[in-house]
C-alpha cells in the first residue's frame, strides 16, 4: 500500500497555479528523489505531502485515507519527520535541539539520552553537544537539523535540500553519512534536491518537477539515463557537466 498519495492536487497562490499534480504516490520503503530547478515547486510539494500546508484543490492521502493539514491527528503527524531547507535551530544547546522531538513525545529520559548520544555520534557532532544551536556554522547546523529529524525514527522522512548550503567536501561527507543511515534504517524518504549528484547517490526512485508539474518518475538510474523530452533539458545539463 502507498503510505502517501496525491490526487488531483493543485496549489494556487495569487491566482497562479504553483503546483498541479494529477497523481503521485510514495510507497513503503521508497527513497524517492524530487529534482527540479529553483522555483519549480519542490518545497511546496514537500509541504503539501507532509500535511504542513493544505492544497487549494484535491486530496492528500495518508495510508489510503484523505487527511487534511488541520485535522491530521497528532499521532499521525508524529510519524512524519521534516528537515526544512533552512536548519532553523532553537536557542538551546545542540543536545536539546536534537532531543526536542522526543521531548515533545514525552520520551523516557534515559532512552532519550541514549538516542541523542547515538545520533550525535552518527553525525559526528558529539563535540558540539553543549554548544548553542543558534551559534553553529552552516554545516554543523545542517547535521543537527538532520539528527533532529532522524532521531524520531519516523515512518516517513522529508528532507528539503539538506545539503544546499554546504561546501563541497562537507557535502560529500554528509551525503555518505546519510546514505548509510537511510540504508540501515530503511525509512521511507522524500529527498528534495536540485543537485543530480546527491540524487544519484542517495535515492532509488526519482521524480522530476518543472514549473509545478511532475514531468517524469521512475527508477533513478532509468530517469537519469533515459530522460523523456520534458525532463531532458534540465537533466541533460547535469549529465554533461558531471558525466554521471
Amino acid at each position: 500500500m502507498n503510505i502517501l498519495q496525491m490526487e488531483q492536487v493543485k496549489f494556487v497562490a495569487n491566482k497562479e497555479v504553483l503546483l498541479d499534480i494529477p497523481y503521485f504516490s510514495l510507497g513503503k520503503g521508497d527513497i524517492l528523489g524530487l529534482i527540479g530547478p529553483n522555483g519549480a515547486g519542490k518545497t511546496t510539494f514537500l509541504k503539501l505531502l507532509s500535511f504542513l500546508q493544505a492544497p487549494t484543490e484535491g486530496d492528500v492521502l495518508y495510508k489510503g485515507e484523505v487527511k487534511h493539514a488541520d485535522t491530521l491527528s497528532i499521532e499521525e503527524r508524529r510519524q512524519l519527520a521534516v528537515a526544512m531547507q533552512q536548519s532553523l535551530l532553537f536557542d538551546m544547546n545542540v543536545s536539546n535541539n536534537v532531543a526536542i522531538g522526543l521531548k515533545l513525545r514525552k520520551e523516557n529520559r534515559k532512552v532519550m539520552k541514549e538516542k541523542v548520544d547515538y545520533w550525535l555520534e552518527k553525525f559526528h557532532i558529539s563535540h558540539l553537544a553543549k554548544k548553542n544551536g543558534v551559534s553553529l556554522s552552516g554545516g554543523e547546523a545542517q547535521r543537527v537539523n538532520l539528527a533532529r529529524a532522524l532521531i524520531l525514527e519516523p515512518e516517513v522522512l522529508f528532507l528539503d535540500e539538506p545539503f544546499a548550503a554546504l561546501d563541497f567536501p562537507t557535502k560529500i561527507q554528509l551525503m555518505e553519512d546519510l546514505k548509510d543511515i537511510l540504508k540501515d534504517t530503511n525509512i521511507t524518504t522524500l529527498f528534495v534536491s536540485h543537485d543530480l549528484i546527491e540524487i544519484n547517490n542517495i535515492t532509488k526512485k526519482l521524480a522530476v518537477i518543472i514549473e509545478g508539474q511532475l514531468k517524469q518518475m521512475g527508477n533513478t538510474k532509468d530517469v537519469i539515463h533515459h530522460p523523456n523530452e520534458q525532463a531532458a533539458p534540465f537533466l541533460g545539463k547535469w549529465k554533461e557537466l558531471y558525466t554521471i
Binding site: 509541504k47 507532509s50 504542513l52 500546508q53 497528532i74 503527524r77 508524529r78 512524519l80 519527520a81 521534516v82 526544512m84 532553523l88 526536542i100 522531538g101 515533545l104 513525545r105 533532529r148 524520531l152 522529508f158
Partner: peptide, 9 residues
Amino acid sequence: MQIKALGAT
C-alpha cells in the same frame, strides 16, 4: 512549520 513538523501539540 518546523515546530509543527516536529510533532508539537
